[in-house]
Design a binder for these strands. Sequence first.
DNA 1: GAATTACTTAGCGATATGACTAAACATGAA
DNA 2: TTCATGTTTAGTCATATCGCTAAGTAATTC
Lengths: 113, 113
Amino acid sequence: MTKHEPDLNLIFQALCDPTRRAMLARLAQGPLAVSELALPTGFALPTVMRHLSVLERADLVHSEKTGRTRTCRNNPVALVATLDWMVQQRALWEQRTDRLEAYVATLMKSESP
Amino acid sequence: MTKHEPDLNLIFQALCDPTRRAMLARLAQGPLAVSELALPTGFALPTVMRHLSVLERADLVHSEKTGRTRTCRNNPVALVATLDWMVQQRALWEQRTDRLEAYVATLMKSESP
DNA sequence: GAATTACTTAGCGATATGACTAAACATGAA
DNA sequence: TTCATGTTTAGTCATATCGCTAAGTAATTC
């Protein structure tokens, strides 16, 4: 069994390149072969392969080879895990904002007659 | 006016380091001076300064200097922008999954008597 | 005004990233 | 079996990242 638990380091690292995000976006439309994936990027095939391996390392994309073509498809799991982290962070930040607002409210209350 | 529009390259790049994510998490509890921020990381101050500048470049953190201490605080805007991107992606991916499921359902229907 | 505190800058070294070309494999078709 | 197709590997180059130390600057404190 190849079950990777989501690694935020690898996932964010993978997402920070626009070419890779574009690849993900294209794969969202449906699975593609490596050469199809490479075409609109304008990069050489080995370069795209490298990007692909970064995406696979982060478990954002899965691929399998049948015959001589490798078919790539998105793996939703990793993205959802990352989304979870971000939502959690936002909650923390906003909680803090709420507390701050409450504090300011208290101040204003105590200053009014 | 210094209004940066959120740059996903810089934001994801900033988020891919665990030290920086830890810094963000700590700042979620409230603003901190650079040295306070540095303390639990175990890294030298210049190293932490570098991480901080990466976070500021991504507009995830703001800081201002008063006297000789610099106070850092989270900027929610960038995180929310990133969250938007991810939610959008997830929607696309899931739309695709839905289509796939619908297709499979159609297949099964047409195969049953 | 000298010492301390809190950053800041400069510069180094090891490693990683992102592009490339050229050459090697491996499979399917002729 | 030979040839074309679709990847894959190997190796190069330029630049970026992440850690460090040492030395600088600027504001308080004594």
